[in-house]
C-alpha cells in the first residue's frame, strides 16, 4: 500500500517547507516592540521598569521553550518546524539581551558597582548572567557558516548547552520571585517535560533521523 500523494499532512509539511523564515523574526519581535511602546507611553502600570524587565525575560523564556519543543513535536508526530528553530533560538537571545539591558540601564541605573555586587552576591542574578553567557556562543554560531566551520557534530555538542541554559533560566526566574505561583511553576513544568523527553528518548536509544537543516 502506498501513501496517497496528496495527504493533508504532507501538504501541510510542504507548505511549512516553503514558508519564508523572515515573518517568524518579525512576529517574534512584536511583543517586545509592543511592550516597549507601552512602557515609554506610560501604559505599563505603576512600576513600568519592573514590568518591562519581567515581560522581556518571560518572552526570552517562552522562545527558549518553543525552540526546545521543536524536536519533541516532530518526534511525537507533529509537524517538522526545524527550519524555524534558528529563528526561535535567536529570538530567545534578542529578548535575553533586551531583558539584561533593561536591568542594567533602567533598573540599576546603570550603577556599575551595584550591578557587579548583585552579580556576585545574588544567586538569582548570578544564574541569570550564566544563562546569558551560555546563550552568547549559541547565538554567535547560529548561522550556516559556523556549522560548516565547526562541523555538524561539534556544533551539535555546543548547542546541547541550551539544555543547561533552560534549567538555569527557570532557576533564575523562580529565585527572583517572592512566592511561587501557578505561572512560574507551569514554565518550570514545561522545561522539565521537554528535557525529560530527551532523557527518555536517548535512554531508549532510538535517535531520530538527522534533520535536514539545523539552526
Amino acid at each position: 500500500m502506498t501513501q496517497p500523494k496528496a495527504s493533508p499532512r504532507r501538504a501541510a509539511q510542504r507548505a511549512i517547507g516553503t514558508f519564508p523564515r523572515w515573518p517568524v523574526y518579525l512576529v517574534g519581535a512584536l511583543p517586545g516592540v509592543w511592550t516597549f511602546w507601552l512602557a515609554v507611553s506610560d501604559q505599563l502600570g505603576a512600576d513600568p521598569v519592573k514590568t518591562l524587565e519581567h515581560m522581556l525575560g518571560l518572552w526570552a523564556l517562552r522562545f527558549l521553550i518553543a525552540s526546545l519543543a521543536v524536536t519533541p513535536l516532530r518526534r511525537l508526530g507533529g509537524p517538522n518546524l526545524v527550519r524555524f528553530r534558528r529563528a526561535l533560538g535567536l529570538l530567545t537571545f534578542f529578548y535575553a539581551c533586551a531583558h539584561l539591558l533593561t536591568w542594567v540601564v533602567l533598573d540599576r541605573g546603570p550603577d556599575m558597582a551595584a550591578i557587579l555586587g548583585d552579580i556576585v552576591k545574588r544567586p538569582y542574578i548570578t544564574l541569570g548572567m550564566v544563562t546569558f553567557a551560555i546563550l552568547v556562543p549559541l547565538a554567535w554560531t547560529s548561522n550556516a557558516r559556523a556549522i560548516k566551520r565547526m562541523g555538524g557534530a561539534a556544533w551539535q555538542r555546543l548547542h546541547r548547552w541550551v539544555y543547561l541554559a533552560a534549567v538555569l533560566a527557570i532557576a533564575h526566574y523562580l529565585l527572583s520571585l517572592k512566592s511561587w505561583t501557578l505561572e512560574p511553576l507551569a514554565y518550570a513544568a514545561a522545561v522539565a517535560a521537554l528535557l525529560l523527553f530527551r532523557v527518555f528518548s536517548s535512554v531508549r536509544g532510538n535517535r531520530p533521523p538527522k534533520p535536514v537543516e539545523t539552526g
Partner: peptide, 19 residues
C-alpha cells in the same frame, strides 16, 4: 536574594527615573 540599599519610588517619572 536582593539588595535593600535602594528603592524605586512609584509614580516618579516612569521608565527613566533613577532609584
Amino acid at each position: 536574594r536582593w539588595s535593600q540599599a535602594t528603592e524605586r519610588r512609584i509614580g516618579e517619572g516612569g521608565l527613566f527615573a533613577p532609584r
